[in-house]
Amino acid sequence: MEIVKELKTYTEDNTNGVKIWFKAARVIDFPENGGACVKYKGLQIAVFNFSRRKEWYACQNLCPHKMQMVLSRGMIGSTTGEPKVACPFHKKTFSLQTGNCLNAEEENISIFPVKVEDGFVYIGFTR
């Protein structure tokens, strides 16, 4: 639960506020059009490789519906162009652009900026 609380205190991030670019893993370690979970300090971050769009997104790994650490295992896709992830448990979907829950009244999730350099994936944190 500690991790949960810490995650909750994270505010929505943008690249300007990033203080730390955390080198997470190699691009080739990630599945295509899918996600994996990155450990950063006490946090679990779900990182998604949208290979079709050549885009990357990151969000908290915790699904706020039943407080399960699983979003990285969810299927990704889009709705009217907006990238999203579906929680494997009950298929609650969340926008990876805004963190909003798209198909239910769940809390928003935290999202994080991602950049790719020299074959490595970096996630941006404010601390």
Binding site: N33, R52, M75, G77, S78, K84, A86, K91, T93
Partner: peptide, 10 residues
């Protein structure tokens, strides 16, 4: 079209 979703993928 688009990127697919949790309905059409499975």
């Amino acid at each position: 079209k688009g990127d697919g979703c949790e309905v059409c993928k499975p």
